[in-house]
């Protein structure tokens, strides 16, 4: 993003991340993305800053392709050892740390933050991967149980991934918020189709590049940039999506999260509603250390019985 005095900089093409590859939108569309002015509190247009780039404008077909990629990747990722998944998530933090200057620049431009604030946000985003990486081989212990049934049976309950999760990433918190919703989905073995922040998508593309170079198998995280209200309904109604995270439904024009939840009922997707009261939606503060709500929302408890005897 920085412009040097003595050379013409090489500008980047921002593409989708699907199945471990970086395709353009099949629709051939892109949209213009601008920096948020300093101190911007909302993602609303009309207060645009500098031009940042043309970003792929994902379509219904791109979302469907991403679901196919996520479904294909799920058994392998869910079947990997928890230790392995933990190392892969930790590796994401390592790779992001190496690119932190780039992330700070992008987050600063995308969110209109001071340099110091952007540094803090990027640090928190990297640390969030570390936090969730550690949960991979502990969560089933903390959440599982050996159940003392009244009979000669061994009975055990443990969490398993729900499957393919569609995630509406937060609109304002373009990196920390994004990491905070994606990591708890994938740490347990789910795969994700993520709609990035509509007006602040550029950090999500750099996150995709970090994922692609971090041993995260292709298809585990798929990131679609574009217009949320256009693509989200297709994910909400998709029959091969198991769960829907509506965190990023706050501040999206032309879309009511209740409609998405209603569409999700068709195959009884697990739905994580946005924060807020009534039919309102608000974006939470992602800086504090999370609890297990997000991780738990996208797991299923399986209970296995077996008789004891001779």
């Amino acid at each position: 993003m920085s412009v040097s005095a003595d050379r013409v900089d090489v500008r980047k093409t921002y593409k989708l991340y699907v199945g471990g590859k970086f395709p353009r939108s099949e629709s051939g569309r892109s949209y213009e993305v601008y920096a948020a002015p300093r101190g911007a509190r909302s993602a609303a247009a009309g207060t645009r800053g500098a031009f940042l780039g043309n970003v792929a404008k994902g379509s219904r077909k791109d979302a469907r392709d991403a679901v196919v990629a996520a479904r294909k990747a799920q058994p392998g990722w869910g079947g990997a050892t928890a230790y392995n998944r933990g190392q892969v998530l930790y590796r994401v933090a390592e790779v992001m740390e190496g690119r932190r200057a780039q992330f700070v620049n992008e987050v600063q431009a995308a969110e209109g933050l001071t340099a110091a604030r952007a540094e803090a946000v990027v640090s928190a985003a990297i640390d969030r991967w570390v936090w969730y990486a550690g949960w991979s081989d502990k969560y089933t212990q903390v959440d599982g149980s050996l159940n003392p049934v009244a009979g000669p049976y061994f009975n055990i309950s443990a969490a398993e991934p729900t499957g393919v999760v569609a995630v509406l990433a937060p609109q304002r918190s373009s990196l920390l918020g994004l990491v905070s919703v994606v990591a708890p989905v994938v740490v347990s073995g789910n795969t994700a189709v993520v709609l990035a922040s509509q007006d602040r998508p550029i950090p999500s593309v750099s996150l995709a590049e970090s994922l692609a170079t971090s041993d995260v198998p292709g298809g585990v995280v798929n990131i679609i940039t574009g217009h949320t209200a256009e693509v989200a309904p297709w994910l909400a109604s998709h029959r091969d999506v198991n769960a829907l995270d509506l965190t990023g439904a706050a501040d999206v024009e032309g879309m009511a999260w209740g409609d998405l939840e209603r569409a999700a009922a068709e195959n009884l997707k697990r739905v994580l509603r946005p924060a807020g009261g009534g039919s309102g939606a608000q974006e939470p503060d992602f800086l504090p250390t999370p609890d297990l709500t997000r991780l738990r929302a996208f797991t299923e408890t399986k209970t296995v019985w077996h008789p004891k005897g001779t």
């Binding site: 049934v149 009979g151 309950s157 019985w305």
Partner: peptide, 16 residues
């Protein structure tokens, strides 16, 4: 959600 191995249709208040 429930897998019964070498048994079936067993229920208990402690068992989710």
């Amino acid at each position: 959600g429930v897998v019964w191995a070498n048994t079936f249709n067993k229920f208990d208040p402690t068992s989710p």
